[in-house]
């Protein structure tokens, strides 16, 4: 096989893997939460069932819905698929990776978010506009923190390409990097904020005072809603995969190492399962914050990321 064809193949495999497994990851996360809260839970496959049901229903649109409203779910979904195809999951040889680096990845997320916010404002309900402004607020505060989180791995790998970073981090000699530890903690905080998880937002509530993400999608139904839910699941999974690629990349296969693939798939699945369980624990032990505490929370994330960068510059580790 030619190397180009190989990388296309590995690209398709990885993207499909993430896109198909994303609802299962969300299901697993919800299952863990249910266990921790002494409930029996709906099972790992529940998100698939919900999506199937939604896809079969007739869509109801508000009378004044504009094309922006109808296009937004598709844009969000394809943005997330694109994002999922940039992050190296099982192998660092991706055909699509030169097309976008970490900054472009942040750009993709921003594009999806802006469409979500515009669509929420389209119907002109009080909830929609409120959700839109909260979502944009949280995002605009978390993006600087996210950039600072990327800084330390960038300095280590001397590249902004995710493939190169993951490659450099996965195949280096083991060393304790306190800077990476700081960046990792900051990254988890940003992950919680960007994916609308506790303590910034509560994904399982429709209480007006607490919701951000749910307020954005109140007017959606049927296939549109299904696509958005799917996109949300892909986003969460991609974020977790990104964290894994940056901070615990061991087990990632190198270019052309086909015999390593089963190992790396298993390693990824295991790490993802652990990440889901850890997220469930985090969400169970912490409480939702008031929205105006969010700047402080994200400020802490920013501070940690900056400390990480500074310690790297000073200690070289």
């Amino acid at each position: 096989m030619s190397p180009f064809f190989e990388s296309i193949l590995s690209q398709l495999t990885q993207t499909l893997l993430v896109v198909v497994l994303a609802p299962a990851f969300l299901g697993w996360l919800n299952q863990c939460r249910a266990w921790l809260q002494n409930r029996s839970g709906a099972g790992v496959l529940q998100p698939y069932r919900v999506m199937r049901k939604l896809f079969h229903k007739d869509a109801v649109l508000a009378k004044n819905a504009s094309p922006v409203f109808r296009a937004a779910p598709y844009v969000q979904f394809s943005c997330m698929v694109l994002a999922a195809s940039i992050v190296p999951v099982i192998e660092t040889d991706l055909a699509f990776s030169p097309a976008a680096d970490v900054i472009a990845l942040v750009g993709i997320f921003a594009l999806a978010r802006v469409f979500a916010a515009l669509a929420a404002m389209d119907i002109g309900t009080a909830f929609g506009t409120m959700g839109a402004r909260r979502e944009m607020l949280v995002a605009s505060l978390s993006e600087p923190a996210l950039l600072m989180v990327f800084f330390t791995p960038l300095l280590i790998a001397q590249s902004t390409s995710l493939n190169a970073i993951a490659d450099a981090l996965a195949h280096r000699q083991f060393a304790i990097y306190p800077s990476l530890a700081f960046a990792a903690v900051a990254f988890v905080m940003v992950l919680l904020a960007e994916n609308a998880r506790i303590p910034i937002d509560n994904p399982s509530t429709h209480l007006e005072l607490t919701m951000i993400h749910e307020a954005l999608i109140l007017e959606y139904s049927a296939r549109h809603l299904a696509l958005i839910e799917w996109a949300t699941a892909i986003k969460l999974t991609t974020y977790c995969a990104l964290g894994i690629a940056l901070f615990v990349p061991w087990g990632l296969a190198q270019t052309g190492e086909w015999q390593m693939l089963p190992v790396s798939v298993l390693a990824f699945a295991g790490k993802l399962a652990l990440a889901g369980a850890a997220l469930a624990v985090l969400e169970t032990v912490s409480a939702k914050m008031r929205i105006f505490r969010a700047p402080e929370f994200l400020g802490m994330a920013f501070l940690l990321a900056v400390l990480g960068m500074l310690t790297f510059l000073l200690l070289g580790a």
Partner: peptide, 21 residues
């Protein structure tokens, strides 16, 4: 870098973190 040097760096970083906390 030797392991002990790495550990010392880790301790230093932790101290800085505690100071900020």
């Amino acid at each position: 870098m030797s392991l002990s040097a790495q550990l010392i760096n880790l301790m230093a970083a932790l101290l800085l973190l505690i100071a900020f906390a």
